[in-house]
Design a binder for these strands. Structure first.
Lengths: 356, 356
DNA sequence: GAACGTAGCAGAATCGATTCTGCCACGCAA
DNA sequence: TTGCGTGGCAGAATCGATTCTGCTACGTTC
């Protein structure tokens, strides 16, 4: 009978092949042997825990790097009870690929992905989960919830199983919760409105959506405040969250019937802004001379419209990265600054400034 | 049946708080005790391995379900040498959020995410990785590479560390590799061209991109074949992969100068098609009466254009799900059918058929 | 009736990290 | 000199699953 091979120290002559056996990665034990130290010392040296002689530490780090040591995530996780991954849910409600602001969300996820990767953690894309049972099947160390609206089932599910949460924009259902990352929407909206006024507008209308998320709600509120402060009558309409071209055109139509006719429009989303500009082209209404248009969110489509649309860049990659950072701080129980506000910038383009 | 207390007595009055202690999940040992069986038997019963008496098996499954047992992923992974996650890289090259076909990619990732979740595996979003070292920091069980072009560094990196790969569309750099999922692009292109001809077109032009990915290359090739078969002169132009509105308008301009002027355009991407239709509106060229337009990829923007654009729906969610399935089969060494072709459907709309 | 094979299960080893426990040597104070 | 505290490290326990080994009871075959 052949004695069971307890794993030889021999080099695998063919390391490229995804062997049928266990992958022959360098273990902490190998580092310890090569450095002439105990496993515990190597672990302490690499993690900065315990007390290790500086000389010993140096030697261990050198050996580990030479051997190309990478800790086994499962072993570490088993001991520390960490999954080594964060979750991100781009939509907590919509079925299929019906995510609302596609470009924003993809850039958001990209930024979060990079930030997690830098910490050697995985960012996993979670499908919409509604119940505690579903959420319990794949438990990340923490979760980022985007596009969250009132009474969100996903938030409740993760709350119940004790997974730390950070939301993108404040959760309208939990106004006291400070663990969120997003924009200073009131300020951004006012900046946009001020810009429109500075370009000569006198009657500024507003097109938002009927979504109940914080961004949408806050922006509309800020618009009304801004108007009231100036003694202007607000002229606001909303489109359904599907924001189809037709719906946007109809909303625009309602605004154009107003008397006096607005000479500027603050459109909350890129999709609305693009549809509005296109429709104005069809109606032969000159942008920006007869009507200025500004978008509350920037992206390719706004930048490439004809004319290019002035837009507020919310920097979604930064938002994603900040969400990951805040989430780790929450997981680790650190009492850091929150919420985390990402400053937006206004990209002035022809739709408000005319040909440059 | 006795209500078995997993772990020690319940001393956490605030289950929402992420406890500082180890999470109190049910372990296989708890199931074994409650069912009066050995851990090994429970494991065999749950995994369908070894030989377990049907009665015992039944009892164990019942107990496990009652206790809400969910296996610890780290412990399992440590033993089986699996990460329990797949990676997906939406762009192997572009920096930042410059993914090309945003809507397609987000739906692709959504489909893959669901499919992985159903197997209790995580789908992790990987940032663009170019080197073996980068890829070694976070090693998934397998990886899906989308938007792959010739001489792709990401493919090489994962190949070197032995991570199984499935690509979205064939890898133009490895034509013999069959582990890919995608569309039957030649057939789809011909279907679109046939549709244009069936609606009365006689001179069909083509606008593609200069990307070197298989989809782009194959479609252009199919167009030329199709023309040759019919003795028609191909009229094809390309736009840079940025596909800005301006670039698309210029490409269209070149086509309109041709004599005879085309009466139909096959536009490869949704972005091109939308830009073309908009530009035609500006030029007062009637769609579809003077010029029919068809898009090689469907999405919201095509469906909501004015007029709505006939488009080929590539069913990206299905592609993503199939990619996950094929990847698992590759990981498990199964010799299953490959490549996996997802049948596309043609959504006929007004841009070719006129008002319905 | 003895020998043998096998289904079913219990017990223990194992994966590779972190972390607890305890030993040793050394420095300093009494 | 003796005693005590402590830095540094070795050894071993531990996390929770899978899987190997071997025992027992039962049936079958000669």
């Amino acid at each position: 009978m052949i004695a069971p091979m307890p794993r030889t120290a021999d080099e695998n002559p063919n390391p490229n092949q995804s062997g049928n056996g266990r992958s022959q990665r360098v273990r902490i034990r190998d580092v310890a042997e090569a450095a002439g130290a105990a496993q515990s010392t190597v672990s302490n040296a690499l993690n900065g825990t315990g007390s290790v002689d500086p000389g010993t530490r140096e030697r261990i780090l050198k050996v580990a790097s030479e051997l190309g040591y990478v800790p086994n995530r499962n072993a570490r996780g088993l001991r520390t009870d960490r999954a080594g991954m964060l979750g991100i849910m781009l939509s907590t409600r919509s079925e299929a690929g019906e995510v609302a602001n596609v470009a924003y969300n993809l850039r958001l996820a990209g930024g979060a992905s990079r930030a997690a990767f830098r910490r050697q953690n995985a960012l996993t894309l979670l499908p919409p989960l509604r119940t505690r049972e579903e959420a319990g099947l794949l438990v990340p160390d923490g979760v980022i919830l985007a596009d969250i609206e009132v009474d969100d089932l996903a938030r409740a599910a993760f709350d119940e199983i004790g997974v730390p949460i950070v939301t993108i924009e404040a959760d309208p259902g939990s106004p006291d919760e400070a663990y969120w990352v997003g924009a200073d929407t009131p300020t951004n909206t006012r900046t946009g409105l001020d810009h429109l006024m500075a370009t000569g507008a006198t009657t500024i209308a507003y097109i938002g959506t009927d979504a109940t998320g914080t961004w949408s709600v806050q922006s509309a509120k800020a618009y009304h405040h801004w108007c009231r402060e100036r003694g202007l009558e607000p002229v606001a309409v909303t489109v359904p969250r599907t924001q189809t071209v037709r719906e946007c055109a109809e909303a625009l139509g309602r605004l154009l019937q107003r008397d006096p006719r607005p000479d500027a429009i603050f459109a909350l989303t890129e999709k609305i802004a693009v549809s509005v500009v296109r429709r104005l082209g069809e109606l032969d209404i000159s942008v920006p001379h007869e009507l200025r248009v500004l978008s509350g969110s920037d992206g390719d489509h706004a930048a490439q419209a004809l004319p290019p649309i002035t837009a507020i860049d919310l920097h979604p990659e930064e938002v994603g990265a900040a969400a990951v950072a805040l989430l780790y701080e929450r997981i680790e129980g650190l009492d850091t600054e929150r919420p985390r506000i990402i400053r937006a910038t206004l990209n002035a383009r022809e739709s408000t400034t005319g040909r440059l």
